[in-house]
Design a protein around this nucleic acid. Structure first.
Lengths: 321, 321
DNA sequence: GCTTTCGTCGATCATATGATCACGATGCGC
DNA sequence: GCGCATCGTGATCATATGATCGACGAAAGC
C-alpha cells in the first residue's frame, strides 16, 4: 500500500527528464554495477518487474547501447546483410587489416569455419584454387586426427592435396587423377569416362560440403598463372559476359553458367552437381573479385561465403540500388 | 562424443585471433541479435555453459562495453565516487546543461529524490535556503496527498513554507515562529525557551529526514541577500576559517562548526541535533559552493548530497591529492 | 616417468529474468 | 454520465542464467 502510494505519487509527476534519469539509473546499476533487477528495485522503490520493463524499453529505445570492442564488431552486421540479401546459409567476414596477406587470412577463416562444422564420418569435396589449397593445409592437422574424407570436385587438385594428405591413410582421400583442363574436348570426354574418374566424381556428389574458390576474370587469375588458360581466352570470356568462375566454370553477372567451349575441356563436376551438394562454401576476397562473388551469391551458386570486410562492403554497395 | 571431438579439435588450434573472433561473435549474437545462450551454443557448436563463460570473460576483459546513451550516463560514476570518498549514503548528480537555472534543477532533483523516499507517516525537517524553498514548492503537490509531516529546523522558514502548506491540514506542519537570526544573544535565548519553540524543536529532532541547503561564504549568499548577515560579518567569518554554512551554522574546511558569536543568535537546532536525524539531505551546487560542500561532506555533516555535474567534478578534483 | 597442480569441462541446481494473465485505473467517445 | 478501449501494474509461471561441484586432461615439477 505504501509502496504503491509512493509509486503513484512518483509517476504522477513523472515527466520526461525524470523518466530518463530513472531509466539511466536503472541501466547503470544493471550493466555497470552488475546488480540484479531485484536489488535495483529495492533500492529505487520499484517492483522487480518494472525494472525489467524499463530495461527492455531502454534497450529498444536505444538508450542502452552495447558496443563490442573488437575489429570483428563491424563485420557481423555485414555478415547479417550478406546472409539476408543473398539468402546465404552463412557468411563470414574477416576484419580489414593492413598486416598479413588477405588470402592467408581467408584461408585461416575458412579452415576455422570447417573445423567447427565438420563432423566425423563426413566428406568434404574440394575445388581448385589458391585459397582452397591454403585452407586445406591448415586443415591438415585436424583432418589427420579425425574421420573426415576428402574428395576432389575437379582434376588438378592432386598437385597440392598430396602434401596435405601425406601421412594419413589414403583410403579417405579420393582425387580425380587428371588435370583441371585438357586441350581437347575428346580427351576430356575420355577421361570423364574412365572408371576411376567416374567413381571419384560420383563420390564427390555425395559429399556433405564443397569448398571452392571464386576466380575473377582478370589477368591475375590463378587459372592463367598456372597455365590452364590464356589471357586471350579470358578476354573472350569477358566479352561473352563472364564475371567469374567456380571450379573452372565461368558464369555471367547473374551467376548463370555460360556456354563456352572451355567448359567442355574441364574434368570435374558441373554446376548442377555442385549445387546438389548440401553446402557449398566459397572463400574469396579482394577488389578484383567483387563482381565475381556478387554474381555467384546472387545466382545461388554458393551457400556459405567467407570474405573480407572491404570486399563485403563493396559487394553490398553494389546492391544498394 | 562427436560434439566433444569437434570442440577438442576446435580448441586445440584455438589461438588468440580466433578466440577473439568467437568471443565477439558470441557477444554479437547475444547482445545484438538477442539470442539466448543456448541458441548461440547450438549455432556455434558450443555448450551453453561455455557461451555463458565466454560472455563473462568478454565483459571482464572489456571486450563488451555497455554505453548508456544519456546525459546522465557520466553522472553515475561521479555519484559512486562521492559516495565512496565521503561515505555518503547517497549522492545524486544532475547532468551539466546550459539551459535552465541550476538551482531550479537541483530543487527538482531533490524533490524527486524525496518523493521516492518519503513514506507515509514520516516526518521531514526542513532548513533554510533558496534551494530548500524551491524543493518544497515542488513537493507541495505530493505532500498534500500524503501523510507527511513537515517541521522546521530553524526559524525564518515560515516566510516561504506557508504558501506551500496552504490548503492542507495545518496539523502536520510545525514551524518555529521566529526569524532565523535575532539581533541579540539574550533574545535568541528567550525565544529558544518559549514553550512552543521548544516543542517544535524537539519534534524536529524526531524527524526521519532533514532537508538543508549549503551556503557559501560569499557575498552572493542568501543570508546576506535576505539581511540576516552583512558582508563585513562574512569577512570576519572567512578570516576565522569559515568555508560554508548549514542552517546558519558556519564550519571550517573539515566541516567542524566554528565558535562564532553569530551562532548564539540563531534560533534553530545545532549540528549535534542535526546529525542525530537519520538522514540529512543537502542540495547545493555552483562554483562558489564547491569548498563548502566538500567540507560538509568530509565532516560528515550530511548523508545525502544532491548537486550538479561540474560541481561534483570540482569537489572530487580537490580530493585527488 | 610419475605425480601434482592447474585449468577447463559439463552436470546439477539455485536464482534471475521475462512471458503471460487478469485486474484496475485512466482517458476517450458516445 | 456511462461504457469501452487502452495502458500500466503486479502475480504467477516457464525459461534463461550463472554458481557450485566433481572429473578429466594437460602441463609443470620432482
Amino acid at each position: 500500500m505504501k509502496v504503491s502510494d509512493v509509486n503513484e505519487a512518483y509517476d504522477e509527476l513523472a515527466f520526461e527528464p525524470h523518466e530518463e534519469e530513472l531509466l539511466s539509473r536503472v541501466a547503470w546499476h544493471y550493466y555497470h554495477d552488475g546488480l540484479t533487477q531485484s536489488e535495483i528495485g529495492e533500492r529505487l522503490n520499484l517492483s522487480r518487474i518494472k525494472v525489467s520493463r524499463m530495461l527492455d524499453r531502454g534497450r529498444r529505445m536505444g538508450l542502452i547501447h552495447v558496443h563490442i570492442n573488437s575489429s570483428y564488431g563491424g563485420c557481423f552486421a555485414l555478415e547479417a546483410r550478406l546472409q539476408e540479401i543473398y539468402g546465404l546459409d552463412e557468411a563470414r567476414v574477416i576484419p580489414a587489416q593492413e598486416a598479413g596477406n588477405v588470402n592467408d587470412r581467408l584461408a585461416e577463416a575458412a579452415s576455422q569455419y570447417l573445423m567447427g562444422r565438420l563432423k566425423d564420418q563426413e566428406m568434404l569435396a574440394v575445388g581448385w584454387g589458391a585459397t582452397v589449397m591454403g585452407t586445406l593445409q591448415r586443415l591438415a592437422r585436424t583432418l589427420s586426427y579425425r574421420d573426415i574424407s576428402l574428395v576432389s570436385l575437379t582434376g588438378g587438385v592432386s598437385a597440392y592435396i598430396e602434401g596435405v594428405a601425406s601421412g594419413r591413410s589414403s583410403q579417405n582421400v579420393h582425387l580425380i587423377p587428371a588435370p583441371l583442363v585438357v586441350s581437347q574436348e575428346s580427351i576430356a570426354e575420355a577421361i570423364r569416362g574412365e572408371r576411376h574418374v567416374v567413381e571419384v566424381m560420383s563420390m564427390a556428389r555425395t559429399a556433405n560440403y564443397a569448398l571452392v574458390g571464386i576466380g575473377a576474370v582478370a589477368d591475375e587469375a590463378t587459372l592463367i598463372a598456372s597455365g590452364y588458360a590464356s589471357r586471350s581466352q579470358f578476354e573472350i570470356f569477358r566479352r561473352q559476359g563472364a564475371v567469374g568462375d567456380i571450379i573452372g566454370i565461368f558464369y555471367d553477372q547473374n551467376g548463370a553458367p555460360l556456354d563456352l567451349p572451355f567448359h567442355k575441356m574441364l574434368v570435374g563436376l558441373d554446376f548442377e552437381a555442385l549445387s546438389a551438394i548440401p553446402q557449398v562454401i566459397a572463400s574469396a576476397g579482394g577488389p578484383k573479385k567483387v563482381e565475381a562473388i556478387r554474381a555467384a551469391a546472387r545466382g545461388g551458386r554458393i551457400d556459405v561465403l567467407i570474405t573480407d570486410e572491404p570486399t563485403a562492403e563493396a559487394i553490398l554497395d553494389k546492391d544498394q540500388a
